[in-house]
Design a protein around this nucleic acid. Structure first.
Lengths: 239, 239
DNA sequence: CGAACTTTTGACAAGCATCAACACGTGTGG
DNA sequence: CCACACGTGTTGATGCTTGTCAAAAGTTCG
């Protein structure tokens, strides 16, 4: 069941047979959740770690204005708060964006795994560094880029990550987010996202065929989005 | 020399005498750098870790538009890229904001330390989680808050972190950043930062007496800045 | 077929950027 | 010692990007 996580961690470090079995053997419970449901609510005691098996999940935070800011997006194979054993609370929530299946792993089991399998701990550490790298890029994205560039960048990132997660190619992948969700992720309004997407289509960078996001011209989109893939580096090594 | 780092890590985990000596005994070289100088440039091979001994340092990234986005700000005691042994490159730069002294530690020495002192590794891990928490808050700050709230939030965070680093109280601390640097950190222009600071003064939330940043009314500033200190949690435990 | 959500469109407003100029303090060299 | 350049802070006028509000059109699903 945790195979997607396993293959992701294998990309970060050479895991022994024993390491792999320890990961596969982690105790976990499965939940299928619908959009809008919470995996974890800000302020709760965090006793579990989460692994996305399919669907899209996000971290978000509700601001004083009532707006919600999506802080990160996670897809199949992504671990979330795998380190909850160390910091048992969190100031943001984890919510499901699309119908998704999530594996819940007790934080204590995760802690034991890390303590007894140093190579796994190392792989998890790298995974966390990658997460941090993406988070910095998001800060730069919403802080410094205009709407057009910002959305193009997001589409590039999700395309490349989908590819790495074997959910499709960067030219064509499934992006099940609504425009409102894209808006919350980019710090824009849904109306403006709609207009920007139209102009991206008009410029021939993307095309829409129902749910799968289709990138018509990856090179142009990456250029328009100021997208340098280096920040996803360990992920590229895997590919 | 690495005492500021040591005391920070002690707040995260109970370090044995041996752990403490291992940290103090880390090989390091000291550099005094002036504003604008780079500690590390994006794309370079990262073979060192950095500890800020005094002054202010930031991570930043230059965007396609030519704007620069400051991704994080670091002060005395803060470690930067302490995990460079694991991900030896980085897509952003580290630059000095004010005259600062930086300790450079070979990444390999850091790796040895972590491998041989699990409790230190744990403390470093927590430090990294705190970093990630701050980074997420910055994403929310620049993504979802208006200029007034955004700047108030930044002032609150830096005040609390200054207090934890024993650089002053949250009511009065030294904020040696220029308005342009604040602008780059918040994704605004220097002109607009100037105007917002004036209105914060007019509202009686801050006052300016030369360089030291003076917060006239912490409670009001925190309210205006939508500032919930929980995301700095381990730091508060230390206090 | 109808309800609920999502996407789209239009008119208008506001926040923030841009550009330009000036004030102020500091250090430097003539 | 003054003149000057330079960085920083301040102010004003103007415009563009993006937000807001409202409503219609399209889509999904029971």
């Amino acid at each position: 069941m945790l195979r997607p996580l396993l293959s992701k961690l294998q990309a970060h470090a050479a895991l022994s047979e024993r390491d792999q079995q320890a990961i596969s053997g982690l105790p976990c419970t499965l939940k299928a959740l619908d959009p809008g449901n919470y995996v974890f609510r800000a302020g709760d005691q965090a006793t579990s770690c989460y692994v996305v098996l399919n669907g899209f999940v996000c971290r978000h935070q509700i601001l004083a204005s009532g707006a919600r800011q999506i802080l990160s997006v996670h897809m199949a194979g992504d671990g979330i708060d795998l380190y909850n054993a160390l910091l048992p609370t969190s100031s943001h929530s984890v919510q499901v964006l699309t119908p998704a299946r999530i594996a819940f792993i007790p934080a204590s089991a995760m802690a034991d795994l890390m303590a007894s399998h140093p190579t796994v701990a190392r792989a998890l550490w790298i995974e966390m560094l990658l997460d941090a790298s993406i988070q910095r890029e998001w800060t730069a994205n919403v802080g410094g880029r205009d709407a057009y560039t910002r959305i193009a960048h997001l589409l590039c990132e999700l395309g490349l990550r989908s590819e790495a997660a074997q959910l499709g190619g960067r030219q064509r992948y499934d992006l099940p987010m609504t425009q409102e969700q894209v808006a919350d992720a980019t710090g824009l309004t849904a109306v403006h996202v709609n207009r920007v997407l139209q102009s991206l289509r008009a410029a021939g960078l993307i095309s829409r065929e129902k749910s799968p996001m289709m990138i018509s011209d990856w090179a142009k989109l990456a250029a328009a989005g100021d997208f340098q893939a280096e920040y996803l580096q360990p992920l590229r090594n895997a590919a």
